[in-house]
Design a protein around this nucleic acid. Structure first.
Lengths: 347, 347
DNA sequence: CTGAAAGCGCTTACAG
DNA sequence: CTGAAAGCGCTTACAG
């Protein structure tokens, strides 16, 4: 393995100059710089990360701790994040170390990893209200970034989409189509995103002068089966009027809803409109739905770049930054005008 | 953060002596050693891994590349391995870096990671015949360990269970109970373990003088649904005689088989015996089956310790070693004597 | 614009 | 049994 010294010897330059040239320091003579780069290329030089890390005092590694749930519906999400984060971090020469949380105490795995003293910071996900991990890491002054929006008052680095906005966009689209009886099939209420989606939904409905019966709200695991079960119950009409539209927390839930509509003999979007939030997971493409699914779209993988950059910059000393993006509304074929009550098979 | 120098200053010793004491070198005076250790403890000393790595020339990190399949049945397995490997490696101060294989070329992700020049070696799994990853890594002289047995002639580090033996044990148990018509619901035939299970099965049957009709052999994804479907077909009796016993590649498949038996109105083990290989995944416990499942048992997590140690020793210069364990046969309630042909509901 | 030097925190021959 | 010294490969003030 070629080192700076080898290049220096080759060119009759000091390692200092070689280092500066390779790192693009402006004071280096441009001809020198080019000579150095050419030699580095030719000798197959690659910087020794460990040496760089020793001198900069950073390990170049960040950690992520994943919680294993019996609910395996999170897996696609996990692999998608893993793929994206690995790439986004690698682009800045940072490696990701994973650990599995097997404990009841949510803070313990973070403590254990820090004791090994090899990490510069952490990436957290699935924030909950008053997240104990946040309290712990802030107290220990350990850099981290949170995936997910925990409110504008967050005093730590975080990136996420505007989840209240997701619900607002869906409600606006549906009400513009005349829908009044709109159901929300939400994610589990212990997660911040589900809380935000719910409040965004209720606020938007209220703003339209619409009232939401309790029976139109549910929070559950994001599986196809849950979507199916809840939609089937709501569409039975046994607990009062049926919804004419569903806002689904995920495309997986939407798949269940569409099956339920079918099993009830209802057309989408003729009788029932369906809109879902789309994390753009490769195995569940909204365009391939029949009919193609209207979505609020925010590819999970896209979140990885800001997450990686926020964390790396923060580790390097930049202040903790909060960043939020708005999901994109993509209208496809699963949403349509509210059905005419006269042609409604279950008036 | 306290350093060796700090401890030396505290005690009036050189960093060399402190280093030796902490690393348990035999030449150090025992009193000195104890003093040093006490001071290290008191000052909260923890060695700087990066510095250690620079001087030893190793990164202290190994990689694993995971392939993402549409077939999500592998997930439990993945998380189980991740958990076990992380722990087993951490016990020897090695970190695991994960990457996701998104490419068609199975070798590309290994090449990419090596170019980043941060890994000491790799852990591979799911070997296939003439594995191209093995060819590549051997050619580049990159240390690795394979999870899975690829034959006694392997000239690289590997650890796995005796998969032919798994089938042999199952066949021996079942034939000792009088079974002659035994079906094998195997994993996908592109994997080495499935090949070994199959040949072990056929050899053991032949050794008993028993013949296996083609209809009693199948290779498929290891899902409950596949177990259900194949068992249901075999138990229909439409393609010739029904099997009286099933050997299943996994407990998940066995769950499907037991459901199929139930749906056909058959008792386990009265009419049909079921035995499965059990990786001891936490979410699919063989003891909780109804009836409790007879298994060949080899907890996946147990494999992680030898894997980690084989790799780390190999990285440190030890020769590549092949190690194989035998699964444990645990007889529970799902296997019983072959049914009397007279009482057999479908003779 | 470039170089000599110090230093990051450790390990390990080499002396004594 | 212990210490002084060199060195792992880099970065970065400090001189010139």
């Amino acid at each position: 393995m070629a080192t700076l010294k080898d290049i220096g010897a080759e060119l009759g330059l000091s390692v200092a100059t070689v280092s500066r040239a390779l790192n693009g320091f402006p004071e280096v003579n441009i001809k020198t710089r080019d000579k150095v780069r050419e030699a580095a290329e030719r000798l197959g030089y690659r910087p020794n990360r460990v040496a760089q890390r020793l001198v900069t005092g950073r390990s170049g590694m960040v950690g992520m701790i994943i919680k294993i749930r019996a609910d395996m519906s999170a897996d696609q999400t996990f692999f998608e994040m893993l793929t994206g984060l690995t790439a986004a971090l690698a682009a800045r020469d940072v490696d990701l170390v994973l650990a599995v949380d097997q404990d009841d105490d949510p803070v313990l795995p973070y403590r254990k990893l820090m004791e090994r003293d090899i990490l510069d910071g952490f990436i957290l996900n699935a924030p909950v209200p008053d997240d104990p991990r946040v309290v712990f890491l802030q107290e220990k002054r350990i850099p981290f970034v949170m995936h997910g929006q925990t409110g504008p008052d967050a005093d730590y680095a975080c990136y996420g989409i505007d989840n209240a906005g997701v619900s607002e966009d869906a409600v606006k689209l549906l009400t513009s189509l005349g829908h009044k009886r709109i159901a929300l099939l939400n994610g589990q209420s212990r997660y911040a995103y589900a809380v935000d989606r719910r409040s965004g939904f209720l606020n938007a409905m209220t703003a339209q002068g619409l009232n939401v019966p309790q029976a139109f709200l549910c929070s559950d695991a994001e599986t196809e089966m849950q979507g199916y079960t809840h939609a089937l119950a709501m569409l039975s009409g046994q607990n009062g009027p049926r919804p004419t539209a569903f806002i689904c927390a995920s495309t997986l839930i939407a798949a269940g809803v569409m099956q339920a509509a079918k099993d009830r003999g209802l057309q989408v979007p003729g009788d029932v409109s369906v809109i879902a939030h789309d994390d753009a997971l490769p195995l569940m493409r909204a365009v391939n739905f029949e009919p193609a699914l209207t979505v609020t779209r925010a590819p999970l993988r896209d979140a990885c770049v800001p997450l990686a950059n926020l964390l790396i910059d923060h580790v390097a000393g930049a202040p903790a930054e909060q960043k939020m993006d708005r999901a994109e509304l993509i209208v496809r074929a699963s949403t349509g005008p509210v059905p005419n009550e006269e042609t409604d098979p279950w008036p």
